[in-house]
Design a protein around this nucleic acid. Structure first.
Length: 448
RNA sequence: GACCCUAUGGUCUAGCGGUUAGGACACCACCCUUUCACGGUGGGAGCCCGGGUUCGAUUCCCGGUAGGGUCGCCA
């Protein structure tokens, strides 16, 4: 029987980073075994669920590159979908649930209770076979000993999570349920429900949770909990996905940066770790830098362009070669596309403010004659490329008896407005003589 | 309160009875250097505690502690 797994999020308006990893692990397993990855929307709480909330999930999964074989194509509950086990929105499956609840009633396993319908839960402990954790024997809690039965249909007629989740997994022929460990205890209920329907439950794999850096539970309010935050900050999706793979799973062999294709080959359920992991932004940051280094120029340019757009920097009027050259000087320097504006905006703006602290340090009376001399040297150059510029600057500094840095700092500030940025010689070459001399003049006017 | 899961440096992890306990991120120092970043070298830092089992436990068992989860007419 071929493997069928699903990611079944509830559209709450954002995609939790833990949910994103659950989706990823489901996808990885499906791709590893050549199975089917299904997306199902658990929108039973109609009041809270909107098409926009569903779109957040769809776009998040697409951003990560997790394609699904069955499921909705748009955020509309009654919109198009692919797969023959639909509908893939729970809000569209009311008739199925009604029929199944009747089945339980007919079997004497469900009964009406103050307007709601309750399931007659078994009183004995339930053994949960789990591919990650092993066999878990779930005893009844004190409250459950008092009354183990639980509501499966609310008094307003709405079926509850445990019921619909099981029915859908059953009807969609799900073979492996890969989900967060927060569902482990509840799995006893699910297994009992499957048994009640006369069907063998799927195999379970409960994966550890992702906690905050300090070990506390990551809830929607915590920074970093939402996938969209990483999209906004300009992380490369492949880096985020790679990092997520490393939380609760290991490629072994002391490897960290592993292409997703290889992860698909290596991934398997029994190798998933059993303990929770904490989310470490610093490591994601580093991985992102690694991916940026490997990235080809066109992909880098595309992501850089997006980052500049968000910062309101317009590159439209500049030649493609100029833009590409400008980006190239930032590529080896940044670890996050959020840094792009501060590394490249001066290429596209003639008006900019100088960093105040750097002004105090570099735009000094002492530096003025030095910069004037260098300006003269730059103006006299016959070729204006990085190598020549470096030579010229070093010649001037030698003549003046100062270190190269004494000239570099004020020139950098004059050309970029900042103390930190791309290689000075390269950025000066790209800006070109005309712009550079103009910027040096403007800076000289402020010195002394 | 009951039930369930978990426990290797600050963090992510390798390890699956005998290892100088390995790697990565982060941190510190130095080198390289036009800033930053990269790169290089070196460094500090770990098997939660207590009992067993065993010739020998980080590794197996039990207890404790700690963290997380569940016990809803939320999902």
């Amino acid at each position: 029987m071929s493997v069928r797994v699903r990611f079944a999020p509830s559209p709450t308006g954002y995609l939790h980073i833990g949910g994103a990893r659950t989706a990823l692990f489901n996808w990885l397993y499906a791709r590893h075994v050549g199975g089917t990855f299904i997306l199902r929307v658990e929108d039973t709480d109609a009041a809270r669920n909107t098409q926009e909330a569903v779109d957040v999930i769809l776009s998040g999964l697409r951003w990560m590159g997790l394609d699904w074989d069955e499921g909705p194509q748009t955020g509309a509950a009654d919109g198009p979908s692919k797969g023959d086990r639909g509908p893939y929105f729970q809000s569209q499956r009311g008739e199925i649930y009604k029929r199944r609840v009747q089945e339980l009633k007919d079997k004497g396993l469900a009964y009406d209770h103050e307007g709601a319908v309750k399931f007659r839960m078994q009183r004995e402990p339930v053994t949960i076979p789990d591919l990650v954790v092993g066999d878990v024997v779930r005893e009844l809690t004190d409250r459950e000993k008092f009354d183990p039965d639980f509501v499966i249909v609310r008094s307003d007629g709405q079926p509850v999570f445990h019921l619909v989740n099981v029915i859908d997994d059953l009807e969609m022929a799900i073979t492996h349920v890969i989900r967060g460990e927060d569902h482990l205890s509840n799995t006893a209920k699910h297994i009992a429900l499957f048994k009640a329907f006369g069907v063998a439950p799927p195999q379970y794999a409960h994966i550890p949770l992702i906690l905050n850096k300090d070990g506390s539970k990551m809830s929607k309010r915590d920074t970093g909990a939402s996938l969209s935050g990483y999209v906004e900050d300009g992380y490369a999706p492949e880096a985020v996905v790679n990092y997520l793979c490393l939380l609760g799973w290991s490629p072994k062999g002391n490897r960290e940066v592993v292409p997703i294709k290889e992860v698909v080959e290596l991934f398997d359920l029994p190798h998933i770790l059993r303990h929770n992991a904490r989310f470490d932004l610093a490591k994601l940051h580093w991985i992102n830098g690694e991916y940026i280094k490997q990235m080809d120029a066109s992909r880098f340019g595309q992501l850089a362009q997006e980052a500049l757009g968000k910062a309101g920097v317009v590159t439209a009027g500049f030649a493609p070669d100029y833009v590409a050259a400008a980006f190239a000087t930032a590529k080896e320097k940044i670890k996050q596309f959020r840094e792009i504006p501060s590394f490249t905006d001066f290429y596209f703006k003639d008006e900019f403010a100088y960093d105040a602290e750097a002004v105090a340090k570099s735009f000094t009376a002492e530096n003025k004659p030095r910069v004037e001399k260098l300006r003269g040297a730059f103006a006299a150059l016959t070729t204006f490329d990085a190598a020549t510029l470096e030579q010229a600057l070093k010649a001037v500094s030698a003549e003046l008896g100062v270190k190269a840095g004494a000239l570099v700092a004020p020139v950098r500030l004059a050309c970029t407005g900042r103390a930190v940025g791309p290689s000075l010689y390269h950025l000066v070459e790209i800006l070109g003589r005309e712009r550079v001399l103009k910027r040096l003049d403007a800076a000289l006017a402020k010195m002394g």
